[in-house]
Amino acid sequence: MAGKKRLAVWKFASCDGCQLSLLDCEDELLAVAEAVEIAYFPEASSRMAKGPYDLSLVEGSITTEHDALRIRKVRRQSKFLVTIGACATAGGIQSLRNFADVAEFVAAVYASPHYIKTLATSTPISDHVKVDFELRGCPINKTQLLELLSAFLAGRKPVISADSVCTECKQRGNICVMVQGIPCLGPVTHAGCGALCPACRRGCYGCFGPTENPNTAALAAEWQKLGAAPRDIRRAFRTFNAAAPAFRTESEAHGE
């Protein structure tokens, strides 16, 4: 396998969906495996080769002390480190604990809470180590993943749009759901899904996290005009990217 770039896939607190996206590239998987050496990918292979690695894909957020140390080890072994998905990029749905008392959360789930070792917060990988690129989404878009891999192999920057979901709605020919009275996070949400929810006649719920410079306050005002209560707005900004600064700040503006 001399000469091939070495790929590693790592998992932290997550649902496994983003790394599954690689196995979901049914038509391209065998070609990817020809182009790179899949050196470490426990979900797919029991061959776990030691580092260093040329490219590490990191799924999941940091929720334990052990993982906070492990991500540093991963960084040291990786030439390029790319986060895949909302957990690794923004802390994921599990970052809802950041707004609560984690001890109370643990006690609500487990009979013997003292067995549990977990941090008070769920944090993105970039809070712990340098990240070279972030793929958004809950889950990521597998076409973007393939673009990332191709760009990496070609030594160029991946071509991934930083527009909002609104742009994708226009491209897809969706009728704007806000115009039909359905609250939608599309105007402040990073593109990448292909405007899936509006295509199903529901409002975007923000899987891809905030776009660059989102005007969340203006959107929240529009939601209010459509009849959304402060609680609805807070819930909407507090999902899979709840800890992303723009969404966190907006959620905090809408009461308890």
């Binding site: 607190a13 929720t63 749905i93 599990q94 604990r97 643990v106 609500a108 789930v109 487990y110 769920s122």
Partner: peptide, 10 residues
Amino acid sequence: FEPPRLFEAL
């Protein structure tokens, strides 16, 4: 050793 994500609480 999957880190707990505490869904039932959240």
